[in-house]
Simulated assay, not measured.
Amino acid sequence: MNKIIAVQDSKGNIYTMPSDSPKCILSVHYSTSYLQFVVQDYYVDNDGNEIFPEKDIIVPLNEKNWVDFIAVQVEEFGTIVDVNGGDF
C-alpha cells in the first residue's frame, strides 16, 4: 500500500497515512508556520492490554513567525519522511 504521507518523531518512530499498522496519522492540521500531526502510538502494557495513546508532532515550516508557535503546546518536533522512495 502506497503511503500518502509519513512523519517521524524525535525517537525515530514513523507514522503513516494510510497505515497498515497501529502507528498511524489520525489528522493533519496546517498553519502558515507548521504542520501539526495528530498520531496514534501503540504499545502493550504489563497486563497485556493494547494501549493506543495519541500525541502531537509538530513539523516547523517557517520558524521566523514565532507568534504562530505560542498556541502550540509541543510534545515534540518531527520531520516529514519519504517512505515510498519518491520525491516530495
Results as ranks from 00 to 15, higher is better:
residue 70 I to N: 13
residue 7 V to W: 02
residue 11 K to F: 05
residue 84 N to R: 08
residue 24 C to S: 14
residue 19 S to Q: 09
residue 52 F to L: 09
residue 4 I to K: 12
residue 87 D to E: 15
residue 71 A to H: 09
residue 37 F to I: 06
residue 66 W to Y: 10
residue 45 D to E: 08
residue 88 F to T: 06
residue 47 D to Y: 13
residue 41 D to K: 02
residue 12 G to L: 06
residue 2 N to L: 05
residue 26 L to S: 15
residue 16 T to K: 09
residue 66 W to K: 15
residue 62 N to Q: 11
residue 44 V to M: 12
residue 32 T to N: 10
residue 73 Q to A: 08
residue 39 V to C: 00
residue 83 V to M: 15
residue 70 I to G: 07
residue 25 I to C: 06
residue 8 Q to K: 12
residue 28 V to N: 12
residue 69 F to D: 02
residue 71 A to N: 14
residue 60 P to D: 15
residue 35 L to E: 07
residue 39 V to G: 02
residue 77 F to P: 08
residue 55 K to L: 06
residue 36 Q to A: 13
residue 1 M to D: 15
residue 1 M to A: 15
residue 68 D to V: 04
residue 9 D to F: 07
residue 13 N to P: 00
residue 66 W to M: 01
residue 82 D to R: 03
residue 81 V to A: 09
residue 88 F to S: 13
residue 24 C to L: 14
residue 74 V to H: 04
residue 74 V to D: 13
residue 3 K to H: 15
residue 53 P to Y: 02
residue 71 A to F: 03
residue 70 I to K: 13
residue 40 Q to F: 00
residue 24 C to D: 13
residue 61 L to E: 15
residue 65 N to M: 04
residue 13 N to G: 04
residue 5 I to S: 12
residue 37 F to T: 05
residue 44 V to T: 12
residue 61 L to F: 07
residue 73 Q to W: 08
residue 75 E to S: 05
residue 72 V to F: 01
residue 38 V to R: 10
residue 8 Q to P: 05
residue 86 G to F: 04
residue 88 F to R: 11
residue 24 C to A: 11
residue 70 I to W: 11
residue 55 K to G: 05
residue 75 E to H: 03
residue 88 F to W: 09
residue 9 D to T: 02
residue 79 T to W: 01
residue 26 L to C: 13
residue 78 G to I: 03
residue 83 V to Q: 14
residue 83 V to W: 05
residue 13 N to D: 14
residue 28 V to I: 14
residue 7 V to C: 10
residue 23 K to Y: 02
residue 15 Y to T: 07
residue 44 V to R: 13
residue 9 D to A: 04
residue 8 Q to H: 00
residue 27 S to R: 10
residue 50 E to T: 12
residue 47 D to L: 00
residue 47 D to T: 03
residue 13 N to F: 00
residue 7 V to F: 05
residue 51 I to W: 05
residue 8 Q to F: 03
residue 62 N to Y: 06
residue 56 D to M: 03
residue 84 N to I: 01
residue 27 S to N: 04
residue 70 I to A: 09
residue 72 V to M: 12
residue 12 G to E: 08
residue 77 F to N: 09
residue 69 F to R: 01
residue 65 N to G: 00
residue 51 I to M: 13
residue 45 D to Q: 10
residue 6 A to D: 13
residue 31 S to T: 10
residue 59 V to S: 04
residue 71 A to I: 03
residue 41 D to I: 01
residue 30 Y to I: 07
residue 45 D to C: 02
residue 50 E to K: 09
residue 70 I to M: 15
residue 20 D to G: 12
residue 54 E to F: 06
residue 43 Y to C: 00
residue 87 D to Y: 08
residue 47 D to N: 10
residue 61 L to G: 08
residue 46 N to M: 04
residue 78 G to Y: 02
residue 62 N to R: 11
residue 6 A to K: 11
residue 55 K to I: 06
residue 22 P to F: 05
residue 17 M to F: 14
residue 47 D to Q: 14
residue 87 D to H: 12
residue 57 I to P: 04
residue 8 Q to W: 00
residue 60 P to I: 00
residue 60 P to C: 06
residue 1 M to F: 14
residue 9 D to R: 06
